[in-house]
């Protein structure tokens, strides 16, 4: 019983991390319709920005995390302005955008490795000793609780924001048809810029929280991104509730799946689920 509880908790924690990456990814995909692989690098930027503010600027945990989230958002916005927007203006195909994003992922990770070194840095050393809570025989740390709450809160706020504001309606309109949205007077480039900022900031929050839970390293972007993308595809690409559902499903399947088989099969389970959905339900659980 304890084993089941703990594996479930582990799955929920993993799911919450995937959800933070998948939410931003799905949001950006919803309006641009291309696979922004640089999204993984933006999460790494968030983690390292927090590391910088904590280690070199001597800030407290909360201001450092908040600033790091903003930095990640701004980097995402800057990538849109300097790379994706010019390419999209030139009517670049999604394949070109995908490859440009892959290039950005590699370049950003390499730059981070140059400036900060390629070593692994746990951010938890800045937060002091970790409180461990016991829930029904399972253990969970404060940071892990914060990860789960953040993922759900971000999802709730984002959904509300997109539903209730004019901005949200514009985002939906662009997602439905960018050209028509432009014709009816929506400044699509500006809206997409804001979407990049918000989506990247959420990924940055994911990077920061992963840093506090386990640690950061320049190459962590790709694995985070892959899990985020699997979650988004399983949930239904471009749909926010789908992304969150897919993320938790993935986290739970990975962690409960290795109950009776060896833990080395975790990634195999994740990609197995991806292949299953691609073949039998390519539109995901909750298609947009």
């Amino acid at each position: 019983m304890d084993l089941f509880v703990q594996l479930t908790i582990n799955g929920v924690i993993a799911g919450a991390i995937y959800a933070l990456i998948a939410l931003g990814f799905a949001l950006i995909f919803g309006v641009t319709k291309f696979f922004n692989l640089a999204h993984g690098a933006v999460a790494v930027v968030g983690g390292y920005a927090a590391f910088f503010f904590l280690e070199h600027a001597g800030l407290g945990v909360l201001p450092a995390a908040a600033l790091a989230v903003c930095v990640a958002g701004m980097v995402g916005f800057a990538l849109h302005k300097t790379v994706f927007l010019p390419l999209r203006r030139r009517q670049a195909t999604n394949l070109v955008l995908l490859i440009a994003a892959l290039g950005l992922l590699t370049v950003i990770q390499a730059l981070i490795a140059m400036f900060f070194g390629s070593q692994f840095h746990p951010l938890s050393q800045f937060a002091g000793a970790q409180e461990v809570y016991r829930i029904a025989g399972g253990a969970i740390t404060l940071v892990q609780l914060i990860i789960i709450i953040s993922a759900l809160a971000v999802f709730g706020l984002l959904t509300l924001f997109l539903k209730k504001t004019k901005f949200g309606k514009a985002v939906k309109a662009i997602g439905d048809d960018e050209e028509v949205a432009q014709i009816v007077g929506i400044n699509t480039h500006a809206i997409i810029g804001y979407v990049f900022f918000i989506g990247s900031a959420i990924a940055g929050l994911g990077g920061v929280l992963v840093g506090f839970d386990t640690g950061i390293e320049p190459t962590m972007g790709l694995s985070l991104l892959l899990k985020g993308i699997i979650a988004a595809i399983v949930g239904g690409v471009g749909s926010l509730s789908g992304a969150v559902l897919g993320a938790f499903l993935l986290g739970l399947a990975e962690n409960l799946g290795i109950w009776h088989i060896s833990g080395e099969w975790k990634d195999a389970i994740a990609f197995g689920i991806l292949i299953f959905f691609l073949i039998w339900r390519p539109r995901g659980i909750l298609p947009r």
Binding site: N10, G11, N255
Partner: peptide
């Protein structure tokens, strides 16, 4: 992998 929780749980 940096998340060994489920292996450790088992």
């Amino acid at each position: 992998s940096r998340d060994l929780r489920s292996q450790l749980t088992k």
